[in-house]
Design a protein around this nucleic acid. Structure first.
Length: 565
RNA sequence: GCCCCGAUAGUUCAGUGGAUAGAACGAACGCCUCCUAAGCGUUAGACGAAGGUUCGAUUCCUUCUCGGGGCGCCA
């Protein structure tokens, strides 16, 4: 949606050398200068003249018609003063008719996407660091769906491996191990493996039996990993994260695809058995440029396979689903690893999935450490945040039944964590501060929700149905209204940019902008007590359009917009 | 040692070559007979360092410093 589309043709008429793509619209730094700006840099480049000169020319030469009351050059910019009401009407109308799809460019219509994310090792309850993957992945899925892609979300269950083997051993010794006890058991198992060589060896032996397909061993692994997975999914469900398909790693042991891959590697002379009898890929034969990270082990000396060997089969399996886009969300610790996988797959001209990386979440006083107990568990955070929110809701929504109060509190808690994490650019570390995340004030998810609750409150008090049909003589045009509406109009661009960057952080930032602008509007422009009935109606429509935009943005972020809070 | 990310107010984050670098938290002061004070207003406060490319650099390039991640039987 470009609300200023009608201004393009007059410019092209005055400068026939240009085409529509040369004309862009940006908000001026402040509304005293004008209502919208056309920067002359691209225009000047094409006309091979100084931007300021072109701007001055354009101010005189272009006849915009009645929608533009003034066109002034300011340096390299052409500032236009508009008949705001006419444009405001178009914007509100576009938002209201777009509804839940407002903001979507439908760029994914007809495209299928396979997206793998979260894929936490089935051991302990996830901490907020691990959960960054789930939040980024889940929001990416939502963004893709919002843009009309058909998305299938996959969760890779790492139900094998040394650490799971150790956990199985410990689980056998402890009685009635439940999910809450897994973290301690896991720490204990790893400690013991470090100290007690026999115990560690037992773990490897168990792993080998698992790979051989011993039914009893498989059942024991399955029991432990199911216990963990169920517990983890319950916590992730609180976040609103959902998955369509669970792929178990154990399915990819001795996968027939691996033999095909080995053939391709042999043909490139890129695989060998080393002096310790390990099966190793020499990536330098596949174009890898450095000594560090040059070797990639597929199989241990005892014939058991490494994680990467199974993962290669998994990557091929996912590719065979034939999606138009094959994405996976990975921590930055997987960067080299994914590059290595891509090179190996490339040996058989097999495409690799596209990786979306994110950096670790750090605590204010340093890195998280499971061993030192220096972690913030996602469930602990949600419990605390939910309890704090519940106290607030109990004060402010006394008339609601406790169940509803509780539901709202949970929504606020989820908003707090999702927003705090998602608003940061994925390739930057998130510095997580518990107190800050629990404060709910300032630039937070709950603040955006609060804006929604205020709008809902106005609509509730009004009582009637707010029409989606915007009248010809839409009376709104004050500064606060204009600033808010132009931000709403920009939402589709923000969505398109987010998809391009594979990151929802700009959506979070935009939601915050809109919420701030709404608050200014809220203070400057009375809605229900506006001077005329027509203005009441118009402002109600602005409220409704704002709510719709915020809801759509929050939906992509996986955050609810409560009616009250 | 080598490779990949990052560095913006005291703090946490925006800002994809263009106008006076924006918020929020924290600090100080002020605002609830007025649609929810989880709010609003005012004040103070920043581009890690040095070079380069450009009409113009927080943004691109180089080096350095600091932080995060990685570099053959963990997943």
């Amino acid at each position: 949606m470009n609300p200023f589309e009608s201004l393009v043709a007059p410019v092209l008429q005055a400068f026939p050398e240009l085409d529509a793509n040369d004309i862009t619209f940006t908000p001026p730094p402040n509304l005293d200068l004008g209502d919208v700006t056309i920067p002359m840099f691209p225009v000047a480049r094409k006309l091979k003249n100084a931007p300021a000169k072109i701007a001055a020319q354009a101010a005189k030469k272009v006849s915009f018609g009645p929608e533009v009351s003034a066109a002034e050059a300011a340096g390299p910019y052409l500032n236009l003063r508009l008949d705001r009401a006419a444009f405001a009407r178009r914007i509100v109308s576009a938002v209201l008719s777009g509804g839940d799809a407002f903001g979507s460019n439908r760029s994914g219509a007809g495209k299928r996407v396979v997206l793998e994310h979260t894929s936490i090792n089935p051991n302990a309850s996830p901490h907020v660091g691990r959960a960054r993957n789930a939040m980024i992945g889940d929001s990416l899925a939502r963004l893709l769906r919002f843009e009309a892609h058909e998305v299938e979300v996959h969760y890779y269950v790492n139900d094998m491996g040394r650490q799971i083997g150790l956990l199985v051993l410990i689980a056998d010794q402890l009685q009635n191990l439940d999910f809450d006890g897994v973290l301690d058991a896991y720490v204990e198992a790893n400690e013991r493996a470090r100290e007690d060589e026999a115990f560690a060896a037992e773990g490897y032996a168990l792993l080998a039996k698992m790979e051989e397909g011993d039914p009893d061993t498989r059942a024991r692994f399955r029991a432990v990993t199911d216990l963990c997975l169920e517990g983890q999914l319950a916590v992730l469900a609180r976040l609103g994260a959902t998955y369509d398909v669970f792929d178990r790693e154990s399915k990819y042991v001795r996968d027939p695809r691996q033999e095909r891959l080995l053939e391709a590697l042999r043909a490139r002379d890129a695989v060998f058995t080393d002096e310790k009898q390990r099966l190793v890929v020499d990536l330098s034969k596949l174009g890898y440029p450095r000594e560090e990270g040059r070797y990639f082990v597929l199989m241990r000396a005892n014939g058991s396979s490494m994680y990467g060997f199974r993962d290669l089969a998994y990557a091929m399996d996912k590719q065979e689903l034939g999606a138009d886009m094959n994405l996976m969300v990975l921590g930055e610790d997987h960067k080299l690893y994914a590059q290595q996988l891509a090179l190996i797959l490339g040996a058989m001209d097999h495409p690799a999935p596209e990786s979306v990386y994110y950096s670790y979440i750090l605590l204010k006083d340093g890195k998280m450490s499971t061993r030192k107990g220096k972690v913030v568990l996602l469930s602990d955070f949600l419990d605390q945040a939910s309890e704090l929110a519940r106290e607030r809701v109990a004060e402010q929504c006394r008339d609601l039944p406790p169940g509803e109060q509780q539901a709202i509190a949970e929504q606020v808690a989820v908003a707090a964590i999702r927003f705090a994490v998602l608003r940061v650019t994925p390739n930057k570390n998130v510095i997580f501060d518990m107190d800050q995340a629990l404060s709910f004030s300032g630039d937070t998810g709950p603040y955006v929700q609060y804006s929604c609750a205020r709008i809902n409150s106005i609509l509730r008090k009004y009582g009637g149905e707010v029409s989606a049909v915007v009248p010809e003589d839409f009376p709104a045009g004050s500064t606060a209204e204009w600033a808010l509406l132009t931000a709403l109009a920009n939402f589709p661009n923000v969505v398109a940019g987010a998809l391009q960057q594979r990151s929802c952080s700009t959506i979070a930032v935009h939601a915050l902008d809109v919420a701030h602008l709404f608050t200014t509007f809220y203070h400057d422009c009375p809605v229900l007590k506006a001077e005329t009935p027509a203005l009441v109606e118009a402002r109600l429509q602005i409220c409704k359009a704002t709510l719709q935009t915020l809801k759509n943005a929050l939906h992509i972020l996986g955050i609810e917009a409560p009616e009250r809070m």
